[in-house]
Structure formats: structure tokens, C-alpha cells
Design a protein around this nucleic acid. Sequence first.
DNA 1: CGGTAATTTGACTCTTCTCAAGAGGCGTGG
DNA 2: CCACGCCTCTTGAGAAGAGTCAAATTACCG
Lengths: 237, 237
Amino acid sequence: MTPSRSKVEKKVACGDCNLNRICIPHGMKPDEVEFIGAAVKRNRTIQKGEIIYRAGETFTGIFAMKSGTAKLVHTDELGNETIIAILLPGELLGFDGISSGRYLCSLVALESSSYCELGTNELDLLHQKLPNLHQILLQRTGDQFNQSIYRIAQSQRSADVRLATFLLELAERYRLRGFSPELIHLSLTRQEMGNHLGLALETISRILGRFESATFIKVEKKFIHILDADGLRRIGS
Amino acid sequence: MTPSRSKVEKKVACGDCNLNRICIPHGMKPDEVEFIGAAVKRNRTIQKGEIIYRAGETFTGIFAMKSGTAKLVHTDELGNETIIAILLPGELLGFDGISSGRYLCSLVALESSSYCELGTNELDLLHQKLPNLHQILLQRTGDQFNQSIYRIAQSQRSADVRLATFLLELAERYRLRGFSPELIHLSLTRQEMGNHLGLALETISRILGRFESATFIKVEKKFIHILDADGLRRIGS
DNA sequence: CGGTAATTTGACTCTTCTCAAGAGGCGTGG
DNA sequence: CCACGCCTCTTGAGAAGAGTCAAATTACCG
């Protein structure tokens, strides 16, 4: 599984991208989005298991998922891997490289995916045209921090709560991206879900079974139908 | 226990502060430190249990611990509190307010402490004098994110490993600040340590007892002597 | 269609939690 | 300076949640 940085295809401009409400351009004026669009390298494509960047590599810029999903993986000194985050279309990646100039984690595609790149050179050029770009980047980075605070807090709760919350969170993030919040596509294996939530894969399987018995969800191969979101929410209280 | 924002005392300038190697000024030229020093409100003091900021308050700026320790506490919708981080002298706080303009967590003093403040107004003024301030803030924010990634990864490991790693990490952070890395002062209760590490307070007590039996450490009231750091490290492998 | 990977399910184990009781420490006020 | 009360810490016993191991079933890929 050799990683490959695939060919660049110029396609939909940022202004026309259906993800521009949640991607970097969010909150920008049309002419500002134009600048961003000119700087972005669009639609790089990768296959399942290939990497967008690897831990330890020099920071080359910020990325945005365009289609597909990816996992942000941290590997400790003993080789233990932890899935820190799941990235959906429109979400930004690469912030783990901001601090030291080297990426702390690796970013691995969970399925065939495409993404856009805002390279460091392009970012530098953009700063001249968009004085508030720094402010935007700062806020996005702060948002990554806040999300991880939320995750740390979640990690204290029981297995049921963590899984229920995870499903609801995925549904909500899909909803914000214009996908159905009732039918969520799991690009993760039970193994990966367990790793992400700090649970054994068998535990994931059992809890999903219990949720299904309680008719909160319906599991169908790689899809989960959310039948009773309020039921799932009640688990957390 | 009413929170109070205590009086401002102008004291040691940033250039003379013994923490300037690890605080905001780290890596700056003397004249740049001068600018920072002029903008910082120094040596606000608070007592144990008082707050520096409260979750939900409008972002008023970045702070730096000058002496003492504090805890960054997240409270979820059910009122569950989670200690996200422990802050030591020279460490920066307030990054949980960068994203939304409101602090996500509360910052509570663990003992009598003092801190410096870089308010939003001062930050804005500074930007004109220090064009690279944005870059520095961005890196510091990214660093907070990276630290929380590290914490998420730790949260997957066993109780022994988490506690051993926590002690070693505290020792190292104290060492970087010029304190003895062998004798660490615990401003936290067992309860708070447990909360921070996702363990029951009894578990903390028992593991510390075990570490003491193995002569890795010596517990003496609120102090922990690290007798065998390598022994503690071996627990993690 | 065969082989491999992923999932489910059961039985059992183990880590950690909870509950409970007692000891120790610290500050306050007499 | 001592006594009291409160908070923190320790220690034990039992319970529970989640992990591990194992085997059978199902899904997926070429």
C-alpha cells in the first residue's frame, strides 16, 4: 500500500462547491472566496488506505475533504494507533502540523476520496490579499482544540453513551453537509469505531445490537438508520 | 466563593521574568519582548477556588500563569465536570475562547496564584507592532490542539500507565520551568487527579500506593518524590 | 466461487468502580 | 494550645462494565 499523491484536477470552483458553507470560505465575501479558489489545488484523489499526509512529514498546508472520509491517526512510541478524528466532506485537516511545522498524526482515507489543498506557499500569498485570513485560520485551529476538549470529556462516559453520542454527532455532521441525518454511511469498521471510542470491537458490535433491539437504530451492512434520535439522546442522560 | 478579578500590580517586566523562556515571549527578539511587556497586565492574583474565566463568558484575551496552578474545567450539559488540563507557571491559557469568542471551559485556581493577561484590545494593538504575532498565536493554538491529541491517545491506556505518564509529564513540565523534577508538588486532590485521568479517586490512591511499594515514588502529603523515573517509564511499555 | 476479512455471539476474566468504614490532616474558634 | 468538625485519603469487599479469547457466521473482493 504505497501512498500516492494523485494528480490534480481543476474542477468546481470554491464559489460553486456545494461545501462552501462549511469549508474554509464560510463567512467570506464572494471576492474573498474568489481569492481562496484561485489558491486551492482541487480534487486530488486517493484510494482507501492511502494517506494524505504522514506523521513526521513537514507541514505542507491545510486540506479540505471534498468527498469521502478519512481518519486522523496518532501513533505513540510503542506503535499503538489511536483514531483521533473522523473527517467528513467539507471538514478541514492538517491542523496537527501547525504547531511544530511537522504533522503529529497521519491522515488516512477510509474510502475512495478527494480533497483540496491550500499549500503553505499559497497561504503566504493569500495573506497579502486577505488580511483576515490569519484570523480565520486562528479560529479554525481554535475550533480543532475545542472539538478535542469535547472528545476528552466524552471519553469519561460509559460505552453506551459514547457510542450513542458518536452516532448522533455523525448524523448531525452529515446533516450540516446536506446529507440525510437518518441514514449514515459507516466507512469505519467495528475495529476502527472501537479504537476511536476507546472500546473493543466486540463491545461496539454488542452495543449496536442492543440499540437495534431497542429500535433506536437499524444496522444494515455499512449503513446505520437512525430510527429514534431522541431515544439515543436519552441514553446520555 | 465569589470569583474576583483582583487588582493589577505592575511588577517584573516580561524581559526580566524568569518564565520568559517558556511564556509568550519565547523565541522573540528583545525589542519584541518589550512590546509584549508593555501590553501585558501583570500579576493579577487569585485565591484557591477562584476563577480566571468562566465557561460562556466573552473571550477577553490570553492569560499566562505566573505562579501557582490552575485547572481547565469543562462542564457538560448534565453538569459533569471534566478537568481538561492542569496549568503550571509560564503556561498559556484562554485558547478555548479563540474559536467562538466565548470560553468553552472555566479556569479555576488550584491554589493562590498569579497570572498575566494579554487582552483582546492589547492584542489588536500589538499586531501593528509585531506582524508575526498572528503566526505566534496560531502556533500556540496549534500546540494546544496537539497536546489534546496526546491526551486523547493516553486516555486509551490502562490506569497504571495513565497515572505514571501523568507524573512523568508533570515532572518534565516542572523541570522545564526550573523546578526540581524529582519533587513535584501536587496542588490536586486525589479526586481531581482521578477526574483528570478518568479514574476513581480510590484507584488513584491504590496505584500511588503500589508505585510507592515498588519504590518508584515516595508520597509525602501533597508532594511526590520521583525516586525511579525509569521505573515509571517502564510501566508504559 | 473461493479465500480472506469483518462481524456476531458466547463464556469467562479482569480491571476498575462503587460502597463503606476508618484514619489522618488541617483550619477555626474557643 | 487543644478540640471539634470537615475534608481528604486509605483500605477492604463486592459488583459491574468492558476486555479477551474462541468459534461460528456473514460479507466482501478478485
